[in-house]
Design a binder for these strands. Structure first.
Lengths: 195, 195, 195, 195
DNA sequence: CATGAATGAGAATTCATTCAT
DNA sequence: TATGAATGAATTCTCATTCAT
């Protein structure tokens, strides 16, 4: 009935949901299979291993993420507009790939030690470069404050955005764009009332 | 001959370090024992179970955390000063209990489902109440902006602070107070240059 | 459109090759199917089970072997000529059914414990009788030495011949007849130079 | 009670017995544990894996074998005496390590493809060199016949000896030395009565 | 206090086999 | 005839935990 690549995607979505909810290690293959309505062994018709499932989940997510990011970075925007676009894009990704983002947050550090997941480290580095250089550009141009430690600022903004995946529920009160707008407002202008 | 409670604390510190680095599930009792220079079975002279180790680590940490928080909340400070004091206190906790904080971040959600760890949920609720009411007080008094979703703001500030445990290394460039100051500056006034 | 029995034989040849190379247990049905250019499940259109494949391979081989042996034994030759003819016939079988012979060598002992493969034990017994009686006849007639343990001699000759299946490659330097001649020369006259 | 290395040796002896009887692949870890009177998981306190068991069995055997062989080869004997000593030594090894020899016969070819078992290939090569050079020396000196293909002769003698592990039972009618003597007599002088 | 040796309950994975299409 | 998808039983291996010494 359902064609092959479709089935694969369904199963990965199921797996991602469970991984995000329970953690990769704490998730048994049996649990995923239960959720998918099949027996544990049957998953191995579709995937080599539990590891290859999380691999495919993460790499698919990162591929899509970087498509969006690269478009933003190539658009030749000013630093503030770049930050705004990146943050907005990030919340859109969280909206579309919430489980994958949550998995990425929780597991990437410890997965990255394995050669198979080297791309996580690569992506991390590329990520850092994109944000840091934008922030530096903004400081140089007078858009951003120059009295802050720039690496601290980078971590602040980065974490601020991605941690949202741990509580965000699609279809909630706020659209991703709305959340992005509020986050940006806080990050850029602070929560204190201007006097 | 190190006295018993001392040895216990040492072992818990070791365990916390490993839990923080590898995740609770991925950490084997054998690994902790290796790190402590003993055999896996020997740990059971000191602790009932692996679970009781993480339990003691987390509850000890939360006890200390709440001692600090309660002092701040009882001090009768204004909303802005309260936030400042809470954030500063938080970074001090991260400095002193980094592994415990990291474990709390990664594991508390999924541990909280067990009755034994109900105190995690309680703490979480108390935490939320303290922050939310302070923010609300600040909005009412005109200290904080009133155009932001207050729960979003809460999550923003909360995550912003605690996520730091994932990268903070004691003895680095910045003291906890210095980091707290910069974080507060960003959170309160934003990263954009005021014009 | 290859006719059915033809296809069957092809598939069995493929299976035999893989069984001989990897061992029966270590060979997966999937591997055989790969080699045959089909999917694992498809083999079950042709065969009941993996076991029935090795069964058919071995029984086909033994049928042909005994046709040759029976002809030799019925020819009324003298003991030495009988031994020569049996050995030559054996090397011819190795040439024609090398994979089957190799499988027989490696697996028959442990397969023979199953009722389904009782014919292996029968064949083994018939085999032993044919050789032993020929050797005994030769000793009685003064053709063979009488100072050797006859069962030891039987095992010596038997193993000597069949083990060749583990290294023999059809189309190599020596024809089966040539190898048989050299083997017989060694077995009958020894490798030491007569003085 | 039983000291550690002793227990290890016992377990390896048990494992070797089962591997030899059923084949490595067909032997389950559970079966070995049953035979040893423990649960399957308990074996992993002593050994890393099933593979490391067969590894230790084979390498221990080969180490001892080469100790004996090297002593013979270093003794400066003539070709005939060398062959006699090697064959005798081989039957002694079969007597002492029958299961290991049987495993070596059945499994080494397919194990040798894995890097971990490269020493099997090395041993095989060293083995071949020792026998071939001795045979060549014997042909040159006029001890052995020069009308035989020397590689064929090598295989003949080699297989003749080692295959005995498949039927040899320690404590049977013949001592290893007695069997060696009869084998040598057949190999060197043939089974035909000299006229 | 610590060790050595085990237990026992799963875990991931493999694989022969089935069956609707 | 062959495919694609599954089943289910077995297999290797892991690991928290126990306990006599």
């Amino acid at each position: 009935m359902t064609p092959t690549p479709e089935r694969r995607r369904e199963l990965l979505a199921t797996a991602a949901e469970v991984f995000a909810a329970q953690g990769y290690n704490a998730t048994t293959v049996r649990r995923i299979a239960d959720e998918a309505g099949m027996l544990a062994g049957s998953l191995y018709y579709h995937f080599d291993s539990k590891e290859s499932m999380i691999d495919e989940i993460l790499s698919t997510f990162l591929d899509e993420l970087w498509q969006g990011y690269d478009a933003v970075l190539a658009a030749g925007l000013g630093p503030r507009e770049t930050i705004e676009a990146l943050v907005t894009e990030s919340f859109r990704e969280i909206d579309r790939h919430r489980p994958a983002v949550a998995i990425y947050q929780k597991e990437s550090k410890h997965l990255a030690t394995q050669p198979r997941f080297a791309y996580l480290t690569d992506s991390q580095a590329k990520f850092e470069k994109a944000w840091l250089s934008t922030l530096e550009r903004g400081v140089a141009e007078g858009t951003f404050r120059d009295d802050l430690d720039i690496r601290l600022t980078y971590r602040f903004v980065r974490d601020t955005v991605w941690v949202a995946a741990s509580w965000y529920r699609p279809g909630g009160h706020h659209s991703p764009e709305e959340i992005a707008r509020q986050y940006l407002s806080m990050v850029l202008d602070g929560i204190a009332l201007r006097t």
